[in-house]
Simulated assay, not measured.
Amino acid sequence: MQKLRTYIEKVDYIYFSLIVLLGLVSLISLYQVQLLQGEFFVFQQIVWYVIGLGGCFAVSYFIDLDILKRLSLFVYLFFLVLLVGILVAPANISKEINNAYGWYSIGGFSFQPAESMKIGLILYLAQVISKGTDDSSSLKGEMLLVGKMTLITLIPVAVVMQFPDFGNAMVYFAIYGAMLLVSHVRIKTILLIFSVPLTVVLSLAITYFIATDFFLDHILGTLPSYQASRFYGWLQPEKYAISGYQLNQSIMAIGSGNVSGYDHLPHVPYAYSDLVFAVIGGVFGFVGASIVLMLYFMLIYKIVMISQRYHDSFGTLIGAGIAGFLTFQIFQNVGMSIGLMPVTGLGLPLISYGGSALVITLASLGLILNMRVNRMTFMFGSK
């Protein structure tokens, strides 16, 4: 009883309120989808939120981060086994959906292990970085740490690319990048590492603008047709009307919202999941979309502040990983809704309809709440 009383006293209610507010945005947005398109997801989303908030409380109340630190390798390996299991599971358990694998389907229950792998990756990277902090001051120690982090990240990336799941592969790299930034690796080494993907992306962009036909035929043409079609629809949605239909409808929906919103939106495929931001922008306009983005900014700010004040670098690194994957998914989802990024299967955190994605996200936010409740207080204040 004393532990519960202490928990109630130490909970960051602003942080928790932001989660609840984003949950309300989710339910309102999905209700609008029901009204506009006749697809029913609100009740299921309420169920997932109840389960997810229960998981958030359990993680923040029962989990000891010091023990979790020691078990991080086993957590990582457990989720990795679940991930690999998708490739070897029988067809009646691991079903192909939209030319891709990624879900265990048993009865009426579906689970996406790529989502849980985010937590496993964050925990193990945090343990490796915090353990290697003392040894990473030398060039040899620094290179060893970067090598370990890269290998730990590339293993799940290689697995999800077999599904294929390009969206979650990018999320794993975002986690890697965010946690690398707060490690003790020197900034010039970090810039050298980041220069490689930036050079590749810049080279591809230049090739597209200088030699468009060559890029479309000889670079995108090497991809499987269903993957290439997404890029065709993103780069030239007017020309590739079928591939770009989803993006065109999303842009029309957001554009129709103007400043304060509009209640007659065009049909947007997968508006309940991939493109829920199009519904927010269309129904609630620029004002509503801006408020949602502000709520996200405040949530990520709280994550960073709470984790930075935790007494162990392990907690700080976990906060960086969680903030990194949330920031990337928000940017990617909003970006693909307005044509800035290619369309992927990444939902808008805490708002898009989803079971395992929502539950895992809420559980990860429970880790931050755990740090706030269990932060040690020293003679001269909190650390």
Rank of each mutant, 00 (worst) to 15 (best):
R372N: 10
M336C: 01
K131T: 07
M1E: 03
A58P: 08
Y104A: 03
A241C: 04
L180G: 03
I330V: 15
Q32Y: 09
T150G: 11
S290Y: 10
V171P: 01
G233D: 05
I51G: 12
S94C: 10
K3L: 11
W234G: 11
I206D: 08
T222Q: 08
G257H: 06
M376T: 10
A271Y: 12
V159W: 00
I351D: 02
M379I: 15
A357Y: 12
Y301M: 06
K69I: 09
V334Q: 02
M252P: 05
N370K: 03
A253W: 12
L80E: 07
I51V: 14
P349N: 04
V157C: 09
Y245D: 13
I8K: 11
F74V: 04
M379N: 06
T150P: 02
Q236M: 14
S203D: 04
R186G: 07
I251P: 08
A89N: 12
G141T: 00
L18H: 11
I322F: 07
Y245P: 08
G345Q: 04
S250F: 14
N333G: 02
F209T: 14
M305W: 05
A58V: 15
I187T: 14
A228W: 00
D135F: 06
S29Q: 05
Q127V: 03
T222L: 08
G107E: 05
G354L: 09
L216H: 02
G347F: 05
R186K: 07
L348R: 07
S256N: 09
V59R: 11
M161T: 00
E115V: 01
S307V: 05
T199S: 13
K118T: 06
L223W: 05
T6M: 01
P197W: 04
H218R: 11
G147S: 00
L350P: 03
K383Q: 08
Y124D: 05
V283T: 13
A363C: 15
G54K: 14
K188E: 14
G288S: 08
Y49H: 12
T207Y: 02
I330M: 09
F78E: 00
Y31H: 12
R372T: 06
M170R: 00
T199F: 13
V196G: 03
Y7H: 00
V157K: 00
A228P: 04
S72T: 05
F231E: 04
L350A: 14
Q246W: 09
